[in-house]
Computed example of a mutant assay.
Amino acid sequence: MAAKLTNSRKTPCELCPLRPLPHFREFTSEELDFVSDFKKGELTVDPGAIVLLEGARSAHLYTVLSGWAFRYKTLLDGRRQILNYVMPGDLVGLQGSITGEMQHSVEALSTVTLCVFERTQLHTLFSRYPSLAYDITWIAAREERILDEHLLSIGRRTAIERAAYLLAFLAQRAKALRMVEGRVVLPITQQHVADTLGLSIVHTNKTLKKLADRGAIVWRDRSCDVLDEEALKAVSGWEGLEEKSRPFI
């Protein structure tokens, strides 16, 4: 499945649909002018397509404008570990911009639209716009904090606690980004859950059935309806993400 690059900016930064959301901080006029020039186009990626490949070098980095994706690593025998999920406002490809090549891959879960930025302009951002440079540092630190929680979940939570945590985490993020209307529908399969939690597909199926029996979720063919986010938090012992306003590029 091929990604399609649109050289013209379909969505002007001034009219970005993410900017009005209270989840994100506002740009100053000077920052907005720079980001508008920094953006070189948009990339449309079909579900199942690879956005970035582990070991590859890319001249670009991206901000997710819409859609769902996930970051993962693969062992030599093909076993996959999903590291985290990518949603609107998230920065993708920064690792490759700093280290020279990607240490993980990124795959689209749904149709994804990405804002495309030239990696070579990062130096200008850091040298002339310290507030935006701080934003990138903040984004990287936040990703580390989330990965800490994911590692704790895999290492110490039981199977049902892991599953409840993951679904509550994704539901909270989707609601904050207004990616859902009414009920929360997560576009993931049981295989995605298994690859995130480090469980077999059989164990994952049995675990999700326990959550469904409690009325917390309804599992469908290629999605999960979250019916009771608070119940999922209670099962996992997770209090949720404490964020008022976060930056994005």
Rank of each mutant, 00 (worst) to 15 (best):
L21Q: 12
I136T: 06
L147V: 13
G89T: 02
G89M: 01
P17K: 04
A174T: 07
V51M: 09
R80M: 12
A163K: 09
L132D: 08
A163V: 01
V226L: 07
G96I: 00
G55S: 09
D225A: 06
L61D: 00
R25T: 14
G240K: 03
K175Q: 13
S245Q: 15
T44L: 12
I217K: 01
T11E: 09
A216E: 01
G155L: 10
V64L: 05
L152A: 10
E42D: 14
A141Q: 13
V226S: 00
R220L: 12
R145G: 07
G240P: 06
L52S: 04
P247G: 01
V106K: 08
V51R: 02
A49E: 10
T74Y: 01
I217A: 02
W138V: 06
V218K: 13
E243G: 08
L53C: 08
F24H: 13
I201K: 13
S8E: 15
P130H: 07
L76P: 11
E101N: 09
V202R: 08
I154T: 14
M87Y: 04
P12W: 01
Q81K: 14
K206S: 11
F117C: 01
I82C: 02
K4M: 08
T189N: 05
H23R: 15
A56S: 14
R145Y: 14
G67A: 08
Q191E: 13
